[in-house]
Amino acid sequence: MAFMPPPGYQPYYNPTLPYNREIPGGLRQGMSIYIQGVANDHMKRFTVNFTLPGGDIAFHFNPRFDGWDKVVFNTKQGGNWGKEEKKKSMPFRKGEAFELVFIVTGEHYKVIVNGSPFYEYGHRIPIQMVTHLQVDGDLQLQSINFLGGGPPPPGQVPMTIPAHPGPGPVYRQSPYELPTMEGPPVFNPPVPFWGRIQGGLTPRKTIVIKGLVTHQAKSITINFKVAQSEDVALHINPRLSEGAVVRNSYLGGKWGKEERNATFNPFTRGQYFDLSIRCGHDRFKVFANGQHVFDYPHRFPAIQRVDTVEIKGDLSLSYVQI
């Protein structure tokens, strides 16, 4: 089963190094680039480059473990490096998972590491000239996600992403069958989180949740609710102590029968997850990190009355889009 990303949300899972790909639709103001990975145990350095055709680099991000742990920032223009900017602080830890976010504003690249603002690097080259993202060095990549920034150029249609990306054709999907995300994204919201689904759930609507399971996590809850009645159409309950992802519905004041079968469990203590929950005509389809986890047939027939997403438990959130 293929994962189909909504417009404005383009993920790549488990990419190999060196990573060098075109930025979907080009770099645009308002775009965010999420990089999740693990620093090698013997990490010395890694680089993230926002590049132009011909080899110039608009933004060079370079953490260095060299005895004077620091992060170096620079621009390469006309084949020549500019003046370095440095921050003598190392937000990455050898052997540990990290989430690195670049938010593109009109004035600078805003760098966020593990949910905390780290640096702002002013533009030296116009962002519309940037075409590619490069990542290489002493790390393992889990995912790279390109989020938002307005619509891609006309005629560019998002493509289905296989659960395990590899060689072979990628098939385009009809625009009328594409999933949708209609609300603005929320970055680093507090937990517990409550979000309103404008107009209620409808077929093809997709909710994306990115977060980190805490190191001592016991339980996480994600509920799709009817605010007026407190009915829960879909209850997703990862139970870390049991190693299970439990699903259920709470209708008319009663819990139904639990479902536990899943392709795999994407929730691990101390690890990031990337959850995509799509409402279909007769079921929810849930993907994590680009792989199908489970389907959940609708038990609540008036699905358009579901108007609230609730997230709570032992996690931190980095991104929610409804």
Rank of each mutant, 00 (worst) to 15 (best):
W81S: 10
W81D: 11
G82T: 08
G82W: 02
K83I: 15
E85P: 06
E85T: 09
K86T: 10
K86Y: 07
S89E: 14
M90P: 09
P91D: 12
F92I: 06
F92V: 08
F92G: 06
R93M: 12
R93Q: 14
E96A: 13
E96F: 05
A97Y: 12
A97F: 03
F98S: 02
E99M: 03
L100P: 03
V101G: 02
F102W: 01
I103M: 15
V104T: 15
T105P: 07
Y109L: 14
Y109H: 14
V111Y: 07
V113H: 01
V113E: 07
N114F: 02
G115R: 00
S116H: 12
S116F: 13
S116N: 12
F118K: 03
E120L: 07
H123M: 06
R124M: 03
I125G: 09
P126K: 13
I127A: 08
I127F: 14
Q128K: 03
Q128R: 10
Q128I: 05
M129Y: 14
M129V: 05
V130F: 01
V130W: 02
V130M: 00
T131Y: 01
H132M: 07
L133P: 04
L133E: 05
Q134R: 11
D136N: 14
D136S: 10
D138Q: 09
Q140D: 05
S143I: 00
I144A: 07
N145I: 13
G148L: 00
G148T: 01
G149N: 09
G149E: 03
G150E: 01
P151H: 13
P153G: 11
G155C: 12
G155P: 11
P158G: 02
P158R: 06
M159Q: 15
T160L: 08
I161L: 15
P162L: 01
P162E: 06
P165M: 11
G166M: 00
P167L: 10
P167W: 03
G168T: 03
P169I: 06
V170C: 12
Y171I: 13
Y171C: 12
R172C: 13
R172N: 05
R172H: 11
Q173T: 15
S174Y: 13
Y176I: 13
L178I: 08
P179A: 06
P179W: 01
T180A: 11
E182C: 01
P184K: 14
P184G: 07
V186D: 04
V186R: 07
V186S: 02
F187D: 11
N188I: 06
N188C: 10
P190M: 06
V191Y: 10
F193A: 03
W194T: 13
G195F: 12
G195H: 11
G195Q: 14
R196T: 13
I197T: 02
I197D: 02
I197L: 04
Q198E: 11
G200A: 06
T202P: 00
P203C: 10
P203D: 05
P203E: 06
T206K: 08
T206S: 13
I207W: 00
I207M: 10
V208T: 09
L212N: 10
L212F: 15
V213E: 00
V213Q: 04
